[in-house]
Amino acid sequence: MNLQILKDMLNKLTLILVLVALQLLSVAQADGYSVMKNVEDFKTKAKQVADKTTTISSDFVQKKILSIMEEEIISEGKFLFKKENSIRWEYQTPFVYLIIINNGEIFIKDDDKENKFDMKSNKTFKSINDMIVNSVSGNIMDDDNYEVSYYESGSYFMVQLIPKDEKMKEYMSTIQVYFDKTSYDVVRVKMMEESEDYTSIEFKNRVVNSEVPDNKFSFK
């Protein structure tokens, strides 16, 4: 067993796993969706809402669909966002897992194991972080790392992102971000793989601009 190779690989792997942790925003088929009629109007309004958003606190439900097994893995927890780019994902059930992104650093806590990474050293990392922050805050349309297309249904606007980078495509072939049609809030993100598997994250009980203490994003 070549341990050094394995070690290097695990290091890289940890980075990637964090990347995807960030992307926690995925979605689905464009069933019932048609091409958005007024894209400029949507972009303006979504931006207005995003500009006014300083904090988001929300419950989330993550579904991982393993199609070949006909299984889904459902996990739930709490999500926090604070401008400019502090994020906290706290999985609470059926397992406990915490990710904090703050000031270009990523912190992961898994039981008694704690890990910290610097995001600045990794370009892909940074672009994914930007994508997350932009998605959550409704500014996703401005990210030129993706080919962006716009759709709508009776209740939702949907922005579909296809990564331009081939590496990125291996992890996620398509990302869909769903906005509520009245509030322009992001309600769901779906990340699809090249297989039929996907990860979907739904935001529930969303509260905007409540007091979110800074220490929610601090770590040792």
Binding site: L13, L19, V20, A21, L24, K64, D110, M191
Partner: peptide, 10 residues
């Protein structure tokens, strides 16, 4: 199938 907690497939 082995995935990360966040859904990334290993």
């Amino acid at each position: 199938i082995f995935t990360s907690e966040t859904g990334l497939k290993f």
